[in-house]
Computed example of a mutant assay.
Amino acid sequence: MTGRDGASVAEGRERGREPATGREPADLAIDFVGEWYEVSPDAVFTIGREGDLEIDDNPYLHRRFMEIRQVDGLWWLANVGSMISATVADASGGMQAWVAPGSRIPLVFGHLTVVFTAGPTTYEFAVHLRSPSFLHQPRATDAVGETTIGPVVFTPAQKALIVALAEPVLRRGGTGFSTVPSSADAARRLGWSLTRFNRKLDNVCDKLDRVGVAGLRGGGGRLATNRRARLVEHAVTSHLVTADDLPLLDRLHGSEED
């Protein structure tokens, strides 16, 4: 495994490309803020506040949050934490899974994005697999940036709300971390009252919850306290919103358009 002290892996690496190390690259590698970590099939790779990939000194993040290991030739990502869930999606956004504490998912695509939130901070890292079990073959008719889950239609104002919450992630433009805005901050960004923002946030979460997007509601019908972060995770990994949607924030600022 090569990480923070392996400059040959991190340097000269183009996003989405294998590192030029002068040797055969590992079958699985992880990109986090431009640093690359090669994962050995004979070891358990740990991710968290401590471990092989030390994400951040964030007290809301588990010391050991995730593990990656190979079992019978198949790579697995396991959530070994107790409170935080993660969103995993392929590069197209067509496959998305919510990995709750105690669960695991096979890594079968060539490029996967893993997004999770600890406290106010949202993190993203990419997993690259040289020998994936599944290959995505895009068709000429595939639409880039369209949501793939259910017949969900959002009004311009609802989409602007999603963009306002996802703005820090969309402007980051790669793996790393950012802070999800509070409802008050996002409302100010849109020039809305907090009451209007919360009403539209309820509507957006209800629409996605009805088509099976997990994590937007708590038990007993109560809205989850971390719904903003979960909404951002889903919207970004499914390509429901992209950086191309950022102009919506200025176009609809202060607008009463629904």
Results as ranks from 00 to 15, higher is better:
Arg130Glu: 05
Ala157Thr: 06
Gly220His: 06
Arg199Ile: 09
Thr195Lys: 15
Trp192His: 10
Val108Asn: 15
Gly3Gln: 12
Gly254Phe: 00
Arg69His: 14
Ala224Pro: 01
Asp250Thr: 10
Glu50Gln: 15
Val236Cys: 10
Asn79Met: 05
Thr46Tyr: 04
Glu256Ile: 05
Val9Tyr: 14
Arg227Trp: 04
His62Gln: 11
Val169Ser: 05
Leu252Glu: 00
Ile55Trp: 05
Phe197Glu: 02
Val152Trp: 00
Leu249Met: 04
Trp98Ser: 11
Leu201Phe: 15
Val144Trp: 15
Gln70Arg: 15
Val236Gly: 04
Ser133Phe: 08
Arg15Tyr: 08
Val115His: 05
Leu190Glu: 02
Arg251Phe: 11
Phe125Asn: 08
Ile162His: 05
Leu240Ile: 06
Ala20Met: 09
Thr237Asn: 12
Val241Glu: 01
Asp57Phe: 03
Ile47Ala: 03
Thr175Ser: 07
Glu38Ser: 08
Pro41Phe: 06
Val153Pro: 01
Ile162Thr: 02
Gly34Ser: 05
Gly215Glu: 03
Phe197Ala: 06
Pro25Tyr: 08
Ile68His: 05
Val144Phe: 13
Leu129Glu: 06
Glu167Cys: 12
Leu194Glu: 14
Pro59His: 03
Cys205Thr: 10
Arg217Thr: 09
Thr122Cys: 13
Gly48Asp: 01
Arg17Cys: 11
Ala140Thr: 03
Ser183Lys: 02
Ser92Leu: 11
Asp42His: 13
Gly176Ala: 06
Glu18Met: 14
Arg64Trp: 08
Ala126Gln: 13
Arg222His: 13
His136Gly: 07
Phe134Tyr: 15
Leu223Asn: 07
Gln158Thr: 04
